[in-house]
Design a protein around this nucleic acid. Sequence first.
DNA 1: GAATCACATAAGCCTATGCTTATGTATTCT
DNA 2: AGAATACATAAGCATAGGCTTATGTGATTC
Lengths: 104, 104
Amino acid sequence: MMENEIFRALADPTRRSIFEKLAAGGMNASSLRDGMEISQPAMSQHLSVLRKAGLVREERQGRFVNYEVDPDGLLLIARWLGKYRAYWPARIDALKILLKDMEP
Amino acid sequence: MMENEIFRALADPTRRSIFEKLAAGGMNASSLRDGMEISQPAMSQHLSVLRKAGLVREERQGRFVNYEVDPDGLLLIARWLGKYRAYWPARIDALKILLKDMEP
DNA sequence: GAATCACATAAGCCTATGCTTATGTATTCT
DNA sequence: AGAATACATAAGCATAGGCTTATGTGATTC
């Protein structure tokens, strides 16, 4: 799981939508498609990209595969953001406090 | 400046390198190229993408153009990350405290 | 004011990427 | 066992994205 894969995964708006949907609660690939106008293979491919980036993880349940947000990916983004804390605007200045714990 | 432009800008490793270099201190486009094996037009194009994404801002100084990190872009990422605070791993749990201030 | 410098833009090429249709692979149901 | 369901993978296509070479533009220097 690399920084590069994460940002490339999030560069696609459809994938960010999928991720956002999963953040509201884990679900299987079919449920994810509901109301999304996306083909089954396209969804499968997007989930694969998200999974390889560490943003999402899967768990087989019978013939369904349940997907959920993987905190590991979010941690990497937080770390990336942390590198630039010197430039954070004042509104998130408080973040500085916790950054000590975030350093690799 | 949109969320989409930000993530797409950061999806390219060269652009993340440029951004990281700028985070160490503002400088002009030529200085940015030093030790980077990148053509002048390529650098100019990357800077344009970063600027349109709100990650970088420019200031003309004579015939040089000085670039520096734009905190606005970072704020957007922080906001995006904030949406998923429920999934942040324990190590950045402290972030929750400040999130009240980050909400739009 | 002509040459030079710093940078931006244009046009074209090549690869990456997201989609489609078709097919493969588990798992469940009858 | 056979059909159906849920999903993954393969192959092909069309567009997007990053690079290159060439040229344009604004500022400085001689």
